[in-house]
C-alpha cells in the first residue's frame, strides 16, 4: 500500500535502521537542536519554523523526495520559508499532526488513513466556526457521501492548502479563489471571468466580487436552497452588500452566462449574434474596399509619386 520513492527510498531504509539502532542518537540531536539551537537555526537559514517540533530538520530537505500513498505521490518536503510565511507559520507541526512528537515522530505514520484524518480534523480544533458551517454546507454534505460525478468535494485543504495556508484578507488570496473553485467548477469560472467582477478582480481591484462574495465560502449551498446566499429571498441582500442602491430588478443580471449559447435568454442571444454578424459584414465591406484601393494604388504606383491623384 505504501511504497517509498526517490531519494526517500535510501533515506528511509537508513531511517529504519537508525530508528532501530542509532535512532536515539538522532533524536537526541534533534532535541538538542530544539532546546539550544532554535535561534541559531533561524538565523542560519529559514530551515526552522518557530516551534516546528524539529520536524523540518528532515522535512525541510528537498532530497527527502516523496512517498506513494494509495497510488498518489505525496511530497515529504515542506518548504520552511513558505511555511513560515503562511498564516500558521508560528504553529508547531504537531498542532495539526496530532500525536507526532519529536520523541517518536512517526509512530502514526503506519496508518496513512488515520494520519490524514487527524490532520484534516485538526482544523476543527482551532477553527470550529468554519468547520461547523462547512459541515452543514453542500460541499460538507458531499464530503461525507464521498464522490459526486467523479469529483471529490473540497475539504479545508483543497481551498486553503496544507502548509502554505494564506491569510484570506489579501488581494492575492482573493484573486486565487476563482482558480480554487475553478478546479471543479471550470465552466462557472469561465463565465465569471467574462463579467466585470471577474475582470476587475483579475486586474487587482480588491473591492470587486469573487465567487465567495456571492456564494459564501464555508456555507455554500445550491441556489435552490432557501438558506443559500443566492436564494430568492437572499439574492438581493447579497448584491446589496456592495451595491447598496440595488433593487429587485438588479438580481436578474446573469452572472454565469454564455451569450452565444442557446441557453442564454433570447434577447442576450439575439444581440450577441447580431453583433457578431455586424462585425463580419462591416469589416468585410471596409476591408474589401480598403484592399482594393491599396491594390489599385500599388498598380498605378501612386504611392511612390509616379502617378496622378486620387
Amino acid at each position: 500500500m505504501k511504497t517509498v520513492a526517490g531519494a526517500a527510498g535510501g533515506f528511509a531504509k537508513e531511517f529504519t535502521c537508525l530508528r532501530r539502532g542509532a535512532g536515539f542518537g538522532i533524536l537526541a540531536f534533534i532535541l538538542l537542536v530544539l532546546l539550544t539551537g532554535e535561534v541559531a537555526w533561524a538565523q542560519e537559514s529559514a530551515q526552522s519554523a518557530e516551534g516546528d517540533n524539529g520536524c523540518l530538520v528532515c522535512h525541510g530537505q528537498e532530497y527527502l523526495g516523496s512517498v506513494e500513498v494509495d497510488g498518489a505521490a505525496q511530497d515529504l518536503f515542506v518548504g520552511p520559508e513558505a511555511y513560515e510565511e503562511s498564516a500558521h507559520g508560528l504553529l508547531p507541526c504537531a498542532s495539526c499532526h496530532i500525536g507526532f512528537t519529536h520523541d517518536n515522530p512517526h509512530q502514526m505514520v503506519t496508518n496513512a488513513e488515520f494520519f490524514a484524518e487527524t490532520a484534516r480534523e485538526a482544523c476543527r480544533n482551532c477553527h470550529a466556526d468554519q468547520f461547523e458551517m462547512y459541515q452543514q454546507s453542500y460541499h460538507g454534505e458531499l464530503s461525507r457521501g464521498g464522490v459526486a460525478g467523479g469529483v471529490l468535494a473540497p475539504g479545508c485543504t483543497d481551498c486553503h492548502g496544507m502548509h502554505q495556508v494564506q491569510r484570506v484578507d489579501t488581494l492575492e488570496y482573493r484573486q486565487d479563489i476563482q482558480q480554487i473553485c475553478g478546479q471543479c467548477h471550470g465552466g462557472r469560472t469561465d463565465t465569471f471571468l467574462d463579467t466585470y467582477h471577474g475582470k476587475a478582480i483579475t486586474l487587482g481591484r480588491e473591492a470587486s466580487a469573487t465567487c465567495v462574495d456571492c456564494h459564501g465560502s464555508h456555507f455554500i449551498l445550491p441556489t435552490t436552497n432557501p438558506m443559500s446566499t443566492l436564494s430568492e429571498a437572499n439574492h438581493l441582500d447579497t448584491c446589496q452588500t456592495c451595491h447598496p442602491d440595488a433593487d429587485e430588478g438588479f438580481t436578474s443580471f446573469l452572472v454565469h452566462i454564455q451569450p452565444t449559447s442557446t441557453d442564454a435568454p433570447l434577447i442576450v442571444f439575439a444581440v450577441a449574434i447580431f453583433y457578431i454578424s455586424m462585425i463580419v459584414v462591416v469589416f468585410a465591406f471596409g476591408g474589401i474596399h480598403t484592399l482594393l484601393y491599396i491594390y489599385r494604388g500599388l498598380k498605378n504606383g501612386l504611392y511612390f509619386g509616379k502617378g496622378g491623384h486620387h
Binding site: 430588478g249 438588479f250 436578474s252 443580471f253 451569450p259 435568454p265 434577447i267 442576450v268
Partner: peptide, 8 residues
C-alpha cells in the same frame, strides 16, 4: 429596465 439589460 431590468438587470438582464446589463448583460445586453
Amino acid at each position: 429596465v431590468s438587470g438582464i439589460f446589463l448583460n445586453v
